[in-house]
Design a protein around this nucleic acid. Sequence first.
DNA 1: CTGAAAGCGCTTACAG
DNA 2: CTGAAAGCGCTTACAG
Lengths: 349, 349
Amino acid sequence: MMAKIKKTTIKDVAKEAGVSIATVSFVLNNRPGQVISEPVKKKVLKAAQKLNYHPSAIAAGLASKRPGNIAFVFYKSDEMISNLYYSFVLEGAIREATKHSFNIMFSYMEDDWETNGDLPKVVREGSTAGVVFIKEIHPDMVRLIEQRGVPVVLVDHYPQMEDVSAIEIDNFRGGELAAEHLIELGHTDIVYFYANADRPSIRGRLDGYRAALEKAGIAFDAKKHLKECEEFTFHSACDLAMETLKKKKRPTAIICANDELAGGVLRAAQRLNVRVPDELSVVGFDNITMSNYTEPPLTTIGGDKEGLGAQAVRRLVNAVKDKADEEKLQILPVELYKRDSTGPAPKKM
Amino acid sequence: MMAKIKKTTIKDVAKEAGVSIATVSFVLNNRPGQVISEPVKKKVLKAAQKLNYHPSAIAAGLASKRPGNIAFVFYKSDEMISNLYYSFVLEGAIREATKHSFNIMFSYMEDDWETNGDLPKVVREGSTAGVVFIKEIHPDMVRLIEQRGVPVVLVDHYPQMEDVSAIEIDNFRGGELAAEHLIELGHTDIVYFYANADRPSIRGRLDGYRAALEKAGIAFDAKKHLKECEEFTFHSACDLAMETLKKKKRPTAIICANDELAGGVLRAAQRLNVRVPDELSVVGFDNITMSNYTEPPLTTIGGDKEGLGAQAVRRLVNAVKDKADEEKLQILPVELYKRDSTGPAPKKM
DNA sequence: CTGAAAGCGCTTACAG
DNA sequence: CTGAAAGCGCTTACAG
């Protein structure tokens, strides 16, 4: 074992600068209200620099009752950070948290928390200044955490909750964009592939698609236009697409609720020798990395994933500092990424 | 603002149980050496349960000088958790950490830390009990952190370092497995696609491949057998494969240093109408999610990604508890996932 | 403008 | 076997 280098503490800095530890704390935290004379400030800063002092986040957290951490909490049974979409949200969150001098923590809750009443470990043990939930979350859990004075922000959440800070991308507009793009290309027979319609993000996309259809004078018929996959997976979409594309009267375009489903549709088209985009146009959603690697590269709708995470952190930081949010629900813009899976509608034969 | 529920503290439990806070601490931490009478133990446990007491991780961390957190640290410029492979490692790490009552934190270091001498924030500020580095890390950084008494574990690391705890999958055996599989299928003309040969994991795979070739009596010729992609990307591999497969005398099998490269090779084959696996067999590496979605689904080599993360955490927990590691370097087994991208070597024409 | 002192909620020798 | 007390490294009213 090598000699352990001891961490320099606030006392060391105080001694070096010839002031009290309170003054060191005031200077380093730039405490609003506290006015410190320039010469003292300089002395402290110089001493801190010289000793390479970095305050203990843990001690500061204890004393101030404001932990320097922000936690992302998931259900235990869910995939957490390996999700192809959310992992980018988390990247953005980490970078933003660091800017504000917060650390990012991960924690999960038991799936049966309702029966055993357990809060996430990070909340129970007071390790976190705020919590962000991604995707599904029970409203009671949100209340319980807020009751402890820990602010919560929801990202792409469901069910819908009023009065809780939340961020999402503009799913409705995304659905519209996808449909408008295809309509402009001359398509009129546009089918929508989805799963988990109970999720507001999925529902929003679907509603946008439908609105665009109707605006273009295309009568919407759920039976004809909506195709629900059994699961939210590549293979499930592939199976359903095989079925759909085998019919004599098949659609000329398919919009998918996300890129993974779109990948499945492309695979089905390939297997059935339906040429994309000549005979079939496909639009995805989310602009995940994989959408560049499909054949052909996928036209898709996407928002700023990293920005979603960064914004969640920003709002939590504000909440911790008691800065009120203007709007409870924040909606981030989306755009169309035109790649090679969409083209003009095939001529009627 | 709703009424904030105050957290119950060790004092509340002590009062409720009619004992000192020291006793509460002893009971709850099951302190080895400290013997507590059964009746007192029961009283304390009952009181803790009744008051729904959960010790403050921050206070405990301060008092014990052992923070309850383990940190994953990356270079700022790197993708962190959005990596298709490492995100699963992290999932495993989080689950294991929770079992040991540790939280997982994320932090990054500046790319230029050598010049400005900055340790990762979580280390500087003493927030973490241990650090795991994934992939590339400068030996000096490891030393600096260990000097502060914070143990380090490396996952799939480079450059090679003696005396540092490290975990990796059996890359050499993986390369062998891939080659043996193809050799069994009758292939003799097996090319290896790779990039970043300076990484030990890539080097290990390559060495295993080469060893298997030679064991089978196939003379290894770097010029003929090795194809280095410019970048470690899908598109780079695709470009190189287009070139390779266009030649009159093309290989009958290609092993790729990872699945993303293999995806690029499959794409090239598809574009050139080279049928997989009839005319060309392809093997990937890592068994990432995407390898199930390629056309055809990819035969690949993989180890237990979640296990890699779990093991890293386990070793850190041991190190924190001063339990010595038996072996510094731990190597996890790999296996072949036979899917549809490999088949018998085509008959010579 | 600056400092002395209490306190955050724990852990841990040390007494008894 | 149990408790009183010091201490972890900070922050924050409160005095002056």
